[in-house]
């Protein structure tokens, strides 16, 4: 996350000192990504070094107030008009875990998927509960509510992806079962038994594995 640009964008609204910047940032993002004040001051020092912000004299309470420079305004404008790069997908522990669960013997992938789905669902319920409270006309509340929406959609996408993985794995298991039954022989009168993946209970419909 670009702390530098976020702080610079806040300075665009008015000159502020470090603690103030942190508070304003967290009001908009609900402490989803907590900033420590040391990080804020380090960033301010760097912004000053690069000519994007300038320190003003201390205010009455002894805080050093920073204001944005012309170069800083240009930098913020460029940030807002440039899409966030997606060239390097962030490391996704869940995707890596499933990729390994599929290939490492002895892992019950169905359980891995269900446990994750429940955990993500519980988080999604919490975000939704918070959303119900976060309503107000204040643009900062709206900002926080949009951040919550982002978390909601990300959690939903994860659950959909898990559903998708489950359906694909079921289909793969069905196909493997079908191939085995063909290899076994044609004498079996109960093809349905063979079509069912090992350890699975009979499904309510033959297309279960391909649904959704």
């Amino acid at each position: 996350m670009s702390v530098k640009h976020a702080l610079l964008a806040l300075l665009e609204t008015e000159p502020m000192y470090g603690y103030q910047l942190r508070a304003e940032f967290e009001q908009r993002t609900g402490e989803t990504w907590p900033l420590n004040v040391g990080q804020v001051y380090t960033t301010l020092t760097r912004l000053e070094r690069d000519g994007f912000a300038a320190a003003e004299a201390e205010n009455a309470e002894g805080h050093v107030v920073y204001r944005i420079t012309e170069a800083g305004r240009d930098e913020v404008a460029a940030w807002f008009t440039t899409p966030v790069a997606r060239t390097q997908p962030p490391r996704d522990e869940l995707a890596i875990k499933l990729a390994l669960a599929v290939t490492v013997p002895g892992v019950d992938i169905g359980t891995v998927i269900q446990q994750q789905r429940s955990a993500t669902m519980a988080a999604l319920q919490d975000y939704t509960r918070l959303k119900r409270r976060a309503v107000g006309a204040d643009p900062r509340e709206l900002a926080w509510s949009l951040v919550l929406d982002s978390l909601v959609f990300a959690a939903e996408a994860e659950i959909r992806w898990l559903d998708h993985c489950e359906a694909r794995l079921r289909r793969a298991a069905l196909e493997a079962g079908r191939q085995n039954s063909r290899l076994d022989d044609e004498t079996s009168s109960s093809h349905r038994e063979f079509h069912r993946p090992a350890g699975e209970t009979p499904s309510t419909s033959g297309t279960e594995g391909t649904s959704r």
Binding site: E31, T32, S118, A119, D126, A134, E200, P202
Partner: peptide
């Protein structure tokens, strides 16, 4: 799944966020 309840959720909280709220 297949006519059986396989799991249930609803108790846990995401602490950071609830504290904020």
């Amino acid at each position: 799944r297949d006519g059986v309840v396989v799991d249930e959720t609803g108790a846990d909280r995401v602490d950071v966020l609830t504290e904020h709220a």
